[in-house]
Design a protein around this nucleic acid. Structure first.
Lengths: 341, 341
DNA sequence: GTTAGCACTCTAATTGGTCGAGTGCTAACA
DNA sequence: TGTTAGCACTCGACCAATTAGAGTGCTAAC
C-alpha cells in the first residue's frame, strides 16, 4: 500500500489536530476539519490504512487516533510548513553582550523556555584546536605565585602556586620568558615530554614551578571536558499531562538536573558535520536516556570561529514543531550575530 | 490552660508518629504507642485540649490529628532529642579539596540530598571586607591586554581590554607599577574618585586603560552580588505526596530553578550573628516565597576566615528534623575543616 | 469509490452502598 | 476528680453497577 495525496492530507490533519488538543482525533472531526468533503466513514477507511502503515495508533478500541513516532517523523520531514508569518515570539532581544558569558547563556535558555513554553537547554560553546597563547607568572605574595594561562579563543585559566624557595623578580622574569618562548602557539599534542624536561633543566632550581605550570596548562587546555550546560523552564513539563505524571516528571526533572546527561545531545549535535542547522529527535530517537517520551529539537550556534554550542528544546512529542524551529532559528541567528557585528 | 508533662508526652508521640507515617494519628494509636497506660478515651480528651491550644489539627471530623506549625515549632525547640547514635549517613567523605570550588559545592549539595532524601541547597561562600591584593596587566596580542585582578581570599578576576594605541613593554610596566602602588591593600570604599583621577593624570595618554581597569576592579570586588547557589535532589519533592501535586510541585521546582530566590535564605542565615549554627523555618516562617508548605533547615559554614556560606535542606514540614540537623552538622564540620587542617 | 446505518467496544463519570477509623459525649466507676 | 467503657455519629476510602458518549468496524446500498 502506498501513501497517496489524500492519505497525506488526512495524516497531516490528524497530526495538526492532535498537536492542538492533545486528545485522540476521531474520523468525524477530520471529516469536518479538512476541505476534502469526505464522510466520516471514508475517513475511517483511510485511517485504518494509515494505522496499518504504522503512521497512527489507537490508544484503545473506541478512541480516536494519535500519531505514532513514525507519523511525527513524516510530519516533521515532509508535511510541516514553515510559515513565514511575522513572529511575535522572542521579540525581546538579547540586549547586548552580557559581561559574563554564563549570564548571557542562562538568559538565552530562559528566553527560549518562555517563548516556547517547553524546557530549554543551552550549552556553552566548546573550543576546538586549543592552542596556548600566553603564560604569565606573577608574584602575589611572599610564597604565592599566580599563573595566568591564556588559550586561543581567549579562555583564561588562573592557578595559584605555592613556592617554598625564595624567588626574586629576575628569576621570575626568566621563567616567564622561558615558558613563553617554548610553549606559545603550541597545541596540547605538540607539548611533549622532551620539551618539558628541557625546560626543567633550563629552569634549574625552579624546575618544580615549571612542573606545576605544565599541570595547569594541561588542565586549561582540556577544560572543555566539563561542558557547561544551562537549563530553564523545567516547570513547563507540568503543562503537558502526558509528562506530568509523578514518576515520569520525577525522571525528567532528575535528568534535567543532572545536566551532564544532556551533554549527549550536544555531542550528537556537534558531531553532525553536514548539519543543516536543525535536528529533531522524536521519542525513541533521543540520545538522552530517560526522555523517551519527549521530542527534542536542537540547533548549533557559532559565537566565533570554531566556538560552537548547542541550543535545544525538550517537550512532549506533540510539541509545536514549527514554533520551536522558528524560535531556535531566531535565537541561533541572534547568537551567531552577537560577536560578528 | 497549660501544657503539663503528660500533654508534652502525648504531643511528642503524635508528632513522632506523624513524622514516620505521614498519616493522621488517632487516639487509639497513641494509647498503645506511649507507656502512659491511658485509654484512648483519655487521650481523646487530651487531644481535644491540645487542639484547642493550637498544637494539633484535625484535617476532617473523623480523622486523627496532625501537628500544626505551632506544634512542629514546639517539637523542634523543646521535644526533639538529638540522638548521639553512630551515624551511617554522610559516611562517604568529601574526599579532598576539589580542584574547583564549584565542583566541591555541587558535590556537597548532592551528598546532602542523597543522604537526607530531601532537596538540598548550598551557597558559595561570600567574601567580606574585600581588599585588592594585586593587579597585573599583560599584553596578549597586538591590540589586547589582559588584566588580572587578585582580591583578598585569592579570588581572581580576569578581564580582556582592547587597546587602540601602541603600547610598548616599558609603558605597560609603568602602568603596572602605577596601579599596584596606588591600589594594593585597599577596599572598595577606600578607592575614591580623587585617587582615580590622579592615576589617570599620571598615566597620560594611557588614561583609558586605567579607566577600564578600574571598572574591572569594581566588578571584581562586588562580585559577590551574584551569589552562586547550587542545588540538588529536586526529585525528592516527589517522595512526599503533600508536595507532589502538580501545581505545588511546579511551584517548588520553579523556585528551585530560579536559584536566586533562594538567596533570601542565605541572607537571612548569614545576618543572624549570634547564630548557634542551625536555623529552622517551619511553614509560613520561611523567608522564601512559594515554599510555605515546606520546612527549611539551614546552617552556616566557614571555609576560611570570613568566607561564610550556607547549606540547607528543604522538605515537607513532616521532615525528619533530627536526621536533617545531624547531616547538616556533619557536612558543616567537613567544610569547616577542609581548609583548616 | 463513497456513504449511511448499525451494532459493538471501551472509557470516563456518576451513583449508591458498605466498611472502618476516629471522634465527641455521656454515664459509670475508683 | 480523673479515668474509662460504651455508643452514636461523621466522614473518607473503596467497590460495584450504571450510564452516557465517543468512536470504531462492518455491511449494504448508492
Amino acid at each position: 500500500m502506498q501513501l497517496d495525496e489524500r492519505k497525506y492530507t488526512i495524516l497531516q490533519a490528524i497530526i495538526r489536530n492532535y498537536l492542538e488538543t492533545g486528545e485522540p482525533v476521531g474520523s468525524r472531526t477530520i471529516s469536518k476539519y479538512t476541505d476534502l468533503n469526505l464522510s466520516s466513514a471514508t475517513i475511517r477507511n483511510e485511517m485504518a490504512d494509515l494505522e496499518e502503515l504504522g503512521y497512527i495508533l489507537q490508544p484503545h478500541t473506541s478512541a480516536g487516533r494519535i500519531p505514532s513516532d513514525k507519523g511525527y517523523r513524516l510530519y516533521v520531514d515532509k508535511l510541516m510548513e514553515e510559515k513565514e508569518r511575522e513572529v511575535e515570539e522572542l521579540k525581546e532581544t538579547l540586549l547586548e553582550k552580557e559581561s559574563k558569558m554564563d549570564h548571557l547563556l542562562q538568559k538565552a535558555a530562559k528566553m527560549l523556555a518562555n517563548s516556547t513554553e517547553y524546557a530549554a537547554v543551552v550549552s556553552a560553546p566548546q573550543y576546538h584546536r586549543n592552542k596556548l597563547k600566553f603564560i604569565q607568572l606573577s608574584r602575589v605574595d611572599v610564597n604565592q605565585i599566580l599563573a595566568v594561562i591564556v588559550v586561543e579563543g581567549n579562555v583564561i585559566k588562573n592557578s595559584m602556586l605555592a613556592v617554598d624557595e625564595a624567588l626574586n623578580d629576575e628569576a621570575l622574569l626568566k621563567l616567564n620568558i622561558l615558558l613563553n618562548t617554548h610553549l606559545n602557539g603550541l597545541s596540547i599534542d605538540e607539548i611533549n615530554l622532551g620539551m618539558i624536561s628541557a625546560m626543567k633543566q633550563q629552569a634549574g632550581i625552579h624546575s618544580d614551578i615549571i612542573a606545576n605550570v605544565i599541570d595547569a596548562v594541561a588542565e586549561a587546555i582540556r577544560a572543555d571536558e566539563d561542558l557547561e550546560i544551562y537549563t530553564s523552564g523545567t516547570k513547563n513539563f507540568f503543562k503537558y499531562p502526558e509528562l506530568a505524571g509523578n514518576e515520569r516528571a520525577s525522571e525528567l526533572i532528575t535528568t534535567f538536573e543532572e545536566k551532564q546527561v544532556l551533554s549527549e545531545l550536544v555531542q550528537d549535535n556537534l558531531a553532525d558535520e553536514n548539519n543543516t542547522g536543525i535536528q529533531v529527535y522524536i521519542g525513541d530517537e533521543t540520545p538522552v536516556q530517560g526522555m523517551k517520551d519527549c521530542s527534542i529539537v536542537t540547533a548549533t550556534y557559532e559565537l566565533d570561529e570554531g566556538m560552537k554550542g548547542t541550543i535545544g528544546i525538550i517537550g512532549p512529542k506533540r510539541m509545536d514543531y514549527e514554533k520551536v524551529v522558528r524560535n531556535l532559528k531566531l535565537l541561533k541567528r541572534q547568537l551567531d550575530d552577537l560577536y560578528r557585528k
